[in-house]
Each structure stands twice: as C-alpha cells, then as structure tokens.
C-alpha cells in the first residue's frame, strides 16, 4: 500500500510541468524513504532525476516498494482538474494497475477523486556517479531561464565557460553573436566556485527545457567538469530536487 499526501497541489503541478516537456512517460519508484524517478529523454541526450524524500509529504506511507508507471500528459490533465491550494493524496494498492488521486479543497468542503491507469514501462536505470565538478555556480533560477531564452535567439549551441572571473554563456549564429557574463555578487545571489576553468558546448534547446523547473526554486545550481554531462539542479524546498544532466557536444 502506497499513500502520500501533499498540502498543496501547486508543487505537484510544478514538478510535473518540469518533467513533461522532456518525458512523455515515467516510472515513479516509491519506497519507505520517498519517491525517486530517473529517465532519459527520447533522444538520449539528457537525463532527469527526481527525488522527493518522505519528509516532503504531509503524510507518507509505503509498506512495500512500488513502481508507478505514469503517462505525464494524462497526469497533467488530472492535475488541471484541481486547484493549486487543494491538498492532494496519491494512493496505490500493492500490484495495482491504477493510481488514485484525491483532491480536497482548502476548506475541506469539496473532494474529488480521479483514477489513472498505470503503465508497464521498461525503464533503463543508469548509475549516476558522484562527480566532483570543477566549477559549481549558484544563481537565481529566473536569471538562468532568462539567459537560456536569450541564447536561443542566436544559436542552437551554447558554450558555457566558467573561470574564477565568472560564468560566460556564448552563442553565435547567422544573425550574430551573444555573450552574457555573470560575476560573483557580494550579496550572494550568484556564487561561483572554481577549481579549474571549464568550457563546454551544449544544445540550447535542452537548457531551455530544463528551465521549466524555474517556479520550483529560487536558486539553480550548475555543475561543470571537463567531458562530463552538465548538471542543472533545482532544489525542491529542503526535501528533494530535480536534477537534469545534459551530454556535451564535442568537436567532430
């Protein structure tokens, strides 16, 4: 038996919004410690990893590990039926072929229950090694979203170069070129830790997709190391995260 209750549907809506542009379907792995999800996009260029620890939930019960294969489009349709301030309870019996979502209005005067058919998804699991990133940058999530949007105007490829002087985003195409550089700020909005400078090229389309997670967090963490995927991490309060990994482009 699995049961998890969140005080607000809004955060669940935001989490699904952050996933559904990259993934059509995904499997939530529920255990007594919380919910994990990991999946590559269809083109196998990026990987998204979601972690929600049980402390994130108002109520959490999971007697036995259970995998819930969900169609994210269908889940979005169900979530549209709920108000952001409704409480939501997700329930599934052991070996169930459906999941139940119950919404309760803030004043408790309205309840609505929906059933969603579960999918049997073959999912590859990849072991994500602990990586020591040579450059770790924290910046406002809205700033990162703005940079990704502005870069996309110029080119499909974005070069991210990080050194002690700052983090620089560059794109150049037929129209011209764009360079945006952020330095560390004394107020701490932007922090930049650099062991070794790194410069890597990435597909801007994916970076823009990651910024769908912007409403979830004030700050985004970016991790860069030579010849490994870029890390873009959005914390979910103090109880979890969405991490996006993006494979770099390399010179042919």
């Amino acid at each position: 038996m699995f049961e998890a209750r969140l005080a607000s549907t809004l955060t669940l809506k935001r989490i699904v919004d952050a996933l559904r542009e990259i993934l059509n379907q995904s499997t939530l792995d529920c255990s007594d410690t919380g919910i994990q999800m990991q999946a590559m996009d269809n083109s196998h260029v990026s990987l998204v990893s979601l972690c929600l620890r049980k402390e994130y939930f108002e109520k959490y019960k999971c007697n036995r590990n259970i995998s819930l294969g969900l169609d994210l489009k269908s889940l979005t349709k169900v979530l549209k039926c709920a108000n952001g301030d409704d409480a939501v309870t997700i329930k599934a019996a052991d070996k169930a072929d459906k999941v139940e979502l119950s919404f309760e209005s803030a004043g408790k005067e309205r309840t609505a229950d929906y059933e969603l058919r579960l999918l049997n998804l073959d999912q590859e699991h990849l072991a994500i090694p602990e990586t020591e990133y040579n450059c770790v940058v924290h910046m406002p999530a809205t700033e990162f979203a703005r940079i990704c949007r502005d870069m996309a105007t110029f080119s499909e490829s974005v070069v991210i170069a990080c050194s002690k002087e700052g983090i620089k985003f560059s794109a150049s195409g037929e129209m011209g070129a764009a360079n945006i550089k952020l330095s560390e700020t004394t107020k701490g909005e932007v922090s930049i830790q650099v062991d070794e400078p790194v410069a890597l090229s990435f597909a801007g389309r994916y970076l823009s997709t990651f910024t769908r997670a912007t409403p979830l967090a004030e700050k985004v963490k970016i991790g860069l190391a030579p010849d490994v995927p870029l890390l873009v991490e959005y914390p979910i309060e103090d109880y979890g995260y969405i991490r996006y990994y993006l494979a770099p482009k390399v010179d042919d």
């Binding site: 590559m40 196998h44 260029v45 990026s46 990987l47 590859e124 699991h125 990849l126 072991a127 994500i128 090694p129 490829s157 090229s201 597909a203 490994v228 995927p229 990994y245 993006l246 494979a247 770099p248 482009k249 390399v250 010179d251 042919d252």
Partner: peptide
Amino acid sequence: QAKQTSIASFFTKV
C-alpha cells in the same frame, strides 16, 4: 561542427 554525445555513454546501466 560539434557533435552531440549521448547521455547513456557517460553513465553505466544498472
């Protein structure tokens, strides 16, 4: 011309 690598090549299957 930069070539896109696959994410799967960086992580091992479990």
